[in-house]
Every structure is written in structure tokens, then in C-alpha cells.
Amino acid sequence: ALEQAMKDLGRSYTRFDYLGHGQSTGLFTDGTISRWTDDALAVLDECTAGPQVVVGSSMGGWIGLRMALLRPDRIAGFVGIAAAPDFTARMKKDLPPEGHADLERQGYWEEPSEYSDEPYIITKKLLDDGQRNFVMTGPIDITCPVHLLQGMKDDSVPWETALDIQKALVTDNVVVSLIKNGDHRLSETEDLNRLVLATERICSQIEYS
């Protein structure tokens, strides 16, 4: 939906699947935040030119913030959809005793997924690597415009996370949109419209800055 909207507005648009996701090759269980950030930076460096607005959902929100920190000369704006920085800390804290036991015994735990019949595989490698990518441990030194979209009925990312991110961001140019009946995916028509408007608003700011 966002790709089509941006094309209709005459803007270029790049999207991709991380290692082990969607149409990309590789195993999801081989992925870490560091590896997926490297994927994103490779696409940024090799497939795009000029200032970019990064749009990231959930885990992609964490990776988008990392991109803005690592490529401040390229990232001119950021839109987060239920952005979930440092989520591996909460994931580790919420693991049941059998989850911790499985991590130590076999290196992963199979968590039942609410979105699929297939379990969600949480690896020890993912949790250990996550700590090296934390961004919520102090001020987030990002100075570009930011818009955060967050559903208040999100059962994966607490809605207060969006407020915590805006407090941590160095930039004052932050808009937080809390959607009272919004869930984690924010894929209803009105939610997609909000996403398009938020993205175009930031694009316009960059053009006239």
C-alpha cells in the first residue's frame, strides 16, 4: 500500500525482505538484529541514492533507528509503525522457565504464535546479539524528523513504547500518533492512510528544509 502510494506521488520506493523472511533466502533462525541491520544497510548503500526516509514496522522499527544512527548522512527521516527497539530484553524477561531451559539445552525455544500454526522460534543467538544493538539505554542521537504510529490495543508492543522512544530521541521534530483501537499490524484502511500521510509529511519536510 505504501509503495503504490509513493509511486502515485512520483516518489522512488525500495523495499526488501530480511534474511529468512518472505522471499529472501536463508533461515530465520540464523538471523540476528546485527545481521538484519547489515541487510538493511546493504540495501541502503547499494540500491538507493540521496536522502532516504526509512519506514520500519515492529522489529523493522528497531532496525530503522539503528540505520539512522549508523548512516546519519543518508537517513533524512524515520517512520515507525509499532516500533519495537530492544524488544529482545522484554522477550528474554517474559520467557517461561521451560523457555530458559530450552535455550540453554538446545539453543532455541519454540514459542506458540498467534499469527500462524507454526511456532515462533526464539534463538539464544538472537537474544544475546540483541543486547549489542540496544538503543533505549540513553539518549538516541537522531536529529532527523520522526513520526511514530502506535496502536493502543497492540498486544505485542506496549503503546507506551512510542512515548519512551520520543523522550529518548535527541530531535524535537517528533510526532507520535496513538490509535486508540489500533492493533500491532495497523493494516486497516484508515491505518494505511495514516501511514501514507505520515510518510509524505516527512518527505515534504525534507524537500523544503
Rank of each mutant, 00 (worst) to 15 (best):
T137F: 05
V176W: 01
K167Q: 10
L127P: 05
F134V: 14
L44G: 01
N173R: 15
Q4N: 10
L41R: 15
D17N: 11
V55G: 04
A5D: 14
Q4G: 09
P119E: 08
K92L: 06
D155W: 08
I202P: 04
F28S: 05
P97L: 12
R11V: 10
I122M: 08
V176H: 02
L65E: 12
E3H: 11
R71L: 01
V196Y: 11
S187T: 10
M91S: 11
D86M: 03
G151I: 04
T123N: 08
R194Q: 13
G64R: 00
A198K: 11
V55S: 04
S12N: 14
S209F: 14
K167H: 05
V170H: 13
L27C: 06
S116L: 02
Q106I: 12
A89F: 01
L95S: 07
M136A: 03
D86G: 04
F78Q: 02
R74G: 04
I81C: 06
S113E: 07
E160S: 08
E46F: 03
K124R: 15
D154E: 12
T29K: 15
D102P: 02
S209D: 07
L27M: 08
R71G: 01
R185M: 07
P85W: 12
A40M: 08
T143Q: 08
P158N: 01
G61S: 04
D191N: 09
L197R: 13
A82Y: 00
A101K: 15
I142N: 00
D129S: 05
T48E: 03
F28W: 14
V196E: 14
Q106G: 02
M152A: 10
D45Y: 12
R11T: 06
L163Q: 07
N133S: 06
G60Y: 09
Q166I: 02
S34F: 02
R194F: 13
D129W: 05
G56I: 09
S58K: 11
W159V: 00
I202C: 06
L70R: 15
S156E: 07
P112W: 11
L2D: 01
A1D: 14
L103I: 14
L65M: 13
L41Q: 11
I121A: 03
V146P: 06
V170P: 04
D154I: 01
A198N: 07
M136N: 04
I140Y: 00
R185Y: 15
R66I: 09
A76W: 03
L44Y: 01
W109Y: 15
K167C: 05
T161K: 07
I206H: 05
A84T: 02
N193W: 12
V146K: 05
I142C: 01
G60S: 03
D164E: 13
G20T: 09
G56V: 13
M136C: 08
D86C: 03
T143S: 14
G130T: 09
N181G: 07
G99I: 14
K7A: 15
I206A: 05
H147I: 12
L149H: 01
G80I: 13
L197A: 14
Y13M: 09
N181A: 07
Q166E: 10
V157E: 00
D117P: 02
P96W: 10
I121M: 11
M136S: 04
P112H: 08
R185K: 08
E207D: 15
S204D: 15
